[in-house]
Every structure is written in structure tokens, then in C-alpha cells.
Nucleic acid binder design. Structure first.
Lengths: 318, 318
DNA sequence: CTGAAAGCGCTAACAT
DNA sequence: ATGTTAGCGCTTTCAG
């Protein structure tokens, strides 16, 4: 019986047909739980992330589901706040969910401790956009440094010299990488790092608003361009700048990062960097499935980013 | 052993402590699969929807997860396109996933056939915003008719008489309900239905753009206000109207529906109706959990909507 | 109150 | 090539 339904070889066609007919007749549904007990498989893969923006989450999920569409694997969503602060709890949480594998989005994808513990319990993983150890797990990489350098260079090329940066969540390695990219461009154009205003943020719209408010409250000449480490903060910054009477991009150029939905809906449309989140999720899931099938760890896949110059940037006035 | 870990009565404290200590020491993780085999539970509930907007999905998921946070239940995401066209496949899909129960978002929450089949296989369900049969399953209700009437009344109160409606996906009962609400308001203010331009849409940004383009291409006087059945389409309409040189709200008032993220990020901010999707998902999940615990079907919960008058509406010119 | 044993529905190994 | 049997790790009897 089991042999037929699992399409094993060495079964006579006649028998195969007969069993299939009866199964169909009885609307037989194999009990996946019982099967799981013996095969040691739950046929579930987890997707974990830590409160990112809606459009990022949705793309991530779409990518995983797209790859899973023709598989028997299901996707379980496991948001977990503060991975960094509670790594043991996080791994226990994953273990308790009885997953066959897990796709880790930032910042968990960069936590060496998490990877170590996952290795220890033998749970394979896919990693989205890690900045370090690209050989571990099935990785989808993005060159955040180069991407950030390109946006910064775009601004410098327009002639901006008084710059402000709004950082992302410090527990995300991407934040550091993007800062590095900006710094490389600044150095190449002779802009001293200590002349650049740097404000913290945490990737949320509200933190972008707060950072912009602090930037405007400073004494001294106002910056002519703001580099936000993601679109949500960039939009927050634009909102506050506008309320302060500044025209975008004439009085202030703003760039974001992510090419999220709002970056296209806001007026003026935001200059940003496209991150192919959907493809990255798909690739990482594909690699995870290979790992699950017992294949050797697939090579990390570097995904292309793209600088999208839209309407929120222009040459500084005067 | 099992008796201790499941906190059963009639166990001596001494034994209880000892077992717990050893379990902790060994980092014992009960095998949820084996447990499921005997208890006939997979401890998974599904959440199904059909390509809605990102912010709606995210709120929906957040609501379910919030209620599940302290439960052992996990959430499996089961998007399924064209439920209406393939009901048998849809139910087979749910059955194969071995779920204990399922939360149905529109349009599945309104498909009587789906409910019938789910009843037949004994899978309990929660329903988000159904328009019919509120007694079946654990329902979170919203008065779409009243909500739509209120937005329409707001526009009529401002003095608008030349109106255009952009419909949502026709397979969603909410679309019909919202049209009814608009119609009630129109009738109350003496606006003839055949003077209202009605364009189809499917709840996507792109369909809102297309509908607005068709509205502007018509001969005869331009409408002074557009009622879009959700925010994404409203934003699409605004984008196209702006490209055609119209100022919002001076030349054209636009209202949406949902209070999605973009409705607050777009300039001018969108007048819309808040639907408490998070609460609705939470309540439906709570009801489903009750059903799963063998309790009788909980009473449907009516959730309050709220008209949010923001900056995309004003009195018509002249 | 606690230990031992019998399955839950399936697959894998073992016979035939 | 096909029928048969022993568990997978747990809960639920049933003894003690």
C-alpha cells in the first residue's frame, strides 16, 4: 500500500492501479502526522523574522511559498522579537515547533550563536542576506556595502557635501554594512566623516521621523541630503522635513533603501536601492530544500541590487 | 512522566519536581508529532487568503499570532488563488495540510460550499468579515454597508454630486456590501444611481490606476469625487489623477477603505475607513481555539469601524 | 499515587 | 513482486 502511494519502484502496474483506484474511492488521505513520526519529518519549514516592514515580510513569504508551491512542505511563520537578546529561547522555540528546517531573515541570519545551536540540533537553515560566514547554510547574499556606496555616490555626484545619515537597527549587520558603503563613497569624494551628521534609527517610519526632527533641530548649516538606511525611515524623514517647510528634492534630497511599495507611492518617488527580497527568499528556500534532501550545502547565491534614481534627489540649491 | 509534563493532578510533589529537573537537565523537548498521532491533533491552524494587500495580510497574521502566542498552536500560511473557482481543490488542500482548524479570510469566509465541506470533514473554522451566515464558525463581523454609507455620506455632505466608484474584486462579498452602502447614501441624498460612474477593479493598486484612467477618458463632466473600495486602489487613482494634472483634494476628492499604511504615508493623507483587521483576526482565532477545545460555537463578534477624515477630501470647487 | 503495556497510522525491514 | 511485522514517541488504559 505504502509502496504504491509513495510511487516506489518494483510494483506491478496492475496492483498499482487497483490500489490507487480504491484509495481514490475511499478519499483516502494519508495521515501526515503518523508518517512524520517514522520519517522524522514534519514537512514544515519555518520562516523567522523580527518585526520588519510589511512589504519586506510579504515579499519574503511570497518567495518561500513560491518555492514550496509544488512541494509537500508547508510554511510556518515564526516571528520572534529580540533574537539577539534571547538566543537560547529562540532556538528552543524553533525546536519546539518541530520544523524540518528554517529560513532565517536578518538579524537572525547573522547570529553565529544561532547557527551554532542549529547545527548542534541538526536543523538545516537558509539565510537571507547575511553579512558574514556565507559558507554556512543556504545563503542568499546581497552586497550591501556596494549598494550603499552607489546611493552615496549618486548624491555626491549631484554635488552634495553636507550630508546626514539615518542608521538602521544596530543589531542588523546590514546597518553596519550600509554605513561602510557610505563611508567608502565619502572618502573617495574627500568628505570628512566627522562632517557627516549620523542619527540612530531602527528601520521604522517613526524612528525616521524622530531622526529627521533631531537633524533639523541642530545648529549649524542644514544638510542638503539625507541617506536613510531603509525606505520607511526615508519616508518618515520626508514627512518631517515637509512639515518643516522644506521642499523635496529642491531643499533636501533623500534616499532610502529597499524599493518598498511606499517608495513608489510617495510623491516625489523615492530614490532607493532595489533588493530582490522575493528572489532571495526563493533561493534560500531552494537551498534549504537541497540540504533537507541530503545534498551538500549549495553555493551561496549573490543577488544583484539596483540603484533606482527617482525623484527625491536633485543637485543642491545654489 | 507524561503525567508530570502535562501538569496532571494526582502526582506527588516530590516526583513532580524530580522529573521536571531531569527533563530540564536533558533539555527534553517532547515530540509534538508523536503526541499529535495519539491526540489526533497537529497543533497547527491554517490562515488562508487570496492575494490581498500587504498591510492587510500583515495585520491578519499579527492578529492570529498574537492570540497564538501563549498556545502551542502554530500558524501555517496557506494562500490559495481562486478559491471560488476551485472549491474542491481548496478543501483538499486544507485537508492535506493536516490542520486542526483554519482561519478563513475573504473571499473564502463567505463561500458556503467551503463551509459545508469543512463541516463535512469536521474541520472547525474562524471567519473574517463574512457577509452571510454569521452563525457558522467563529465569526468576526464588520458592518461594511454602514461603513461604506458613512464615507459616501461624508462626500455628499461636502457637496459632491458627480461621483465615481471603483469596485473591488467581485468575488469578495465585501465589494457588494460596500456598493450597497454607497447606494444607500446616494439614495438618501437624491443622487441617481445612473449618474454615478462605476468602474470595476480588483483591490490592487494597478486596477485603481486603470480604473481612474478609464474615468478620466470618459466624455462628459469629470466627477468631483472618487470612492475606491480599498486604499490601494484609491492610491492608484490618486497617482493617475495627479499625472493628469489634477490636484487632490481641490480638483478631485478621493476616499479609500481599510486605513492601510499607505493611506497615512501618501500626501495628502487619505480619508478612509478603519477596519480593525488585527482585532478581527485575533477574535476569530480566539473563537476557533474555543471550538477546538470542544466549546460550543462562540457568538459572532461585531467589530467597530471608524471613518477617518483626513486630507484627500474637500468640498468641490466652485 | 505510580509503573507497565497497548496502541495511534504509518514506513522500513524482513519474509515469502 | 508482494504480504507481514516491528517499532517511531507519545498518551491512555490497566494493574499494582
Amino acid at each position: 500500500m505504502s509502496r504504491v502511494l509513495n510511487d516506489e519502484p518494483f510494483v506491478k502496474d496492475a496492483l498499482r492501479e487497483k490500489v490507487k483506484a480504491v484509495a481514490k474511492d475511499l478519499k483516502y488521505q494519508p495521515n501526515i502526522t503518523a508518517k512524520g513520526l517514522i520519517t522524522r519529518r514534519s514537512y514544515m519549514i519555518g520562516l523567522t523574522y523580527e518585526r520588519p516592514s510589511p512589504s519586506y515580510v510579504v515579499e519574503l513569504q511570497r518567495g518561500v511559498l513560491e518555492r514550496l508551491a509544488d512541494e509537500r512542505f508547508r510554511m510556518v511563520i515564526l516571528p520572534f522579537s529580540d533574537v539577539t537578546a534571547r538566543i537560547d529561547d529562540f532556538v528552543a522555540f524553533l525546536r519546539a515547533a518541530a520544523l524540518d528546517g528554517v529560513v532565517l531573515a536578518p538579524p537572525a541570519s547573522d547570529q553565529t550563536d544561532v547557527l551554532d545551536q542549529l547545527d548542534a540540533v541538526g536543523m538545516p537553515y537558509g539565510r537571507i542576506a547575511p553579512q558574514s560566514e556565507p559558507a554556512r547554510g543556504a545563503c542568499s547574499l546581497l552586497d550591501d556595502i556596494a549598494a550603499a556606496r552607489e546611493v552615496a555616490e549618486h548624491l555626491l555626484g549631484l554635488g552634495h557635501r553636507r550630508l546626514a545619515v539615518i542608521l538602521g537597527d544596530a543589531t542588523h549587520a546590514a546597518s553596519t554594512a550600509r554605513s561602510q558603503g557610505y563611508a567608502q563613497a565619502f572618502a573617495a569624494h574627500g568628505v570628512a566623516m566627522d562632517s557627516v551628521i549620523v542619527e540612530p534609527g531602527d528601520f521604522t517610519f517613526a524612528s525616521g521621523e524622530a531622526a529627521m526632527a533631531r537633524i533639523l533641530a541642530r545648529s549649524g548649516p542644514r544638510p542638503t541630503a539625507v541617506l536613510a538606511q531603509n525606505d520607511d525611515m526615508a519616508v518618515g524623514a520626508i514627512t518631517v522635513a515637509r512639515e518643516a517647510g522644506l521642499a523635496i528634492p529642491d531643499d533636501l534630497s533623500v534616499v532610502g533603501f529597499d524599493d518598498s511599495d511606499i517608495s513608489r507611492l510617495i510623491m516625489p518617488k523615492l530614490t532607493t536601492v532595489r533588493q530582490p527580497v522575493f528572489d532571495m527568499a526563493l533561493t534560500a528556500t531552494d537551498g534549504l530544500l537541497k540540504l533537507l534532501a541530503g545534498e551538500p550545502a549549495p553555493a551561496p547565491v549573490l543577488h544583484a541590487h539596483e540603484l533606482l534614481i527617482r525623484q527625491s534627489t536633485a543637485a543642491p540649491r545654489g
